[in-house]
């Protein structure tokens, strides 16, 4: 009996912990967003974060997209040739990449790279009192550290995904024409024949949301970290894991919302 009560108490405590954490996260996000509209603004810091999140993630995202497009063409050929439906390969590649794989894979890669780096940087600033030092120097740490990163995340991810879309299609094109013997013109025409603006736009909207999530989880975990180097390490891990899970969960929800037949 005591054992069962103990288990129930533990489950209850865990639930309360999750709810409290969610509340803190929401308050943190709202504070970060609210500073977007209140001066002073830090355009230089937004620029710096854009470089870190966007520009320096470009090689990783580009390679991921390229190979994904290539594999996609190859795999769908295996399946579709059994139904003599090879002509659908171009559509499958472009739709999967723009609607789904571009944003999700770019999101996961950027969260591993930039989200982790953000958590480590803010975590180090926290445990070495740099965040406290900011507020003693008439500067709001939320405004100075968090808001520029949130903005940069929302701007950078759609740009990265646009690049990923192009490279993913290119990967499919390379495999289809060189390895599977497709006519380049025919492949390109059937790529664009079935593509609608909505497909690309829905992918870019997803990307903006994922960019926000990556920056938010990176900042939130870094900002709250405590307990020296170990705490910073834990914050970094938590940032990547939570951002990745949220990206996959939100991907389903957004797909449902943005669903087009």
């Amino acid at each position: 009996m005591n054992f069962i009560l103990g288990v129930i108490a533990a489950i209850g405590a865990a639930c309360l912990g999750v709810v409290a954490l969610l509340g803190e996260l929401v308050i943190f996000a709202v504070a970060g967003i609210s500073h977007i509209f209140r001066p002073p603004f830090y355009p230089r810091l937004v620029g710096r974060s854009l470089m870190e999140i966007g520009f320096f993630s470009l090689p990783v995202v580009a390679l991921t997209a390229l190979f994904t497009g290539m594999v996609l063409a190859l795999q769908s050929y295996t399946g579709f040739s059994r139904f003599n439906a090879e002509s659908a390969i171009a559509s499958v590649v472009v739709l999967s990449v723009t609607r789904e794989l571009g944003p999700v894979l770019a999101g996961l890669m950027v969260s591993g790279r930039a989200g982790a780096a953000m958590a480590a940087e803010l975590g180090t600033m926290r445990v070495t009192d740099q965040i406290d030092a900011l507020s003693t120097l008439s500067t709001s740490p939320m405004k100075y550290l968090v808001t520029p990163r949130l903005l940069a995340g929302v701007i950078a991810l759609p740009l990265l995904v646009a690049v990923a879309d192009i490279l993913g299609v290119m990967g499919g094109f390379i495999v289809a024409t060189w390895k599977l013997g497709f006519n380049p013109n025919v492949y390109l025409i059937s790529t664009f024949a079935n593509l609608r603006a909505g497909d690309v736009v829905s992918g870019l909207i997803k990307a903006a949301v994922f960019g926000f999530i990556i920056a938010l989880m990176g900042c939130f975990n870094g900002y709250r970290s405590k307990g020296g180097a170990e705490g910073v390490g834990a914050a970094t891990t938590a940032a990547v894991v939570s951002a990745s899970i949220l990206i996959l969960a939100l991907d389903y929800i957004l797909t449902q919302i943005l669903f087009v037949k």
Partner: peptide, 25 residues
């Protein structure tokens, strides 16, 4: 004005920007 125990200098900024930080803010 606060001098933190371990300095708490901003390591992403050069020395002069650290010193002028409050004045700029």
């Amino acid at each position: 004005g606060m001098l933190f125990q371990n300095g708490a200098l901003f390591d992403s900024l050069p020395v002069w920007e650290n010193v002028a930080f409050g004045l700029l803010a």
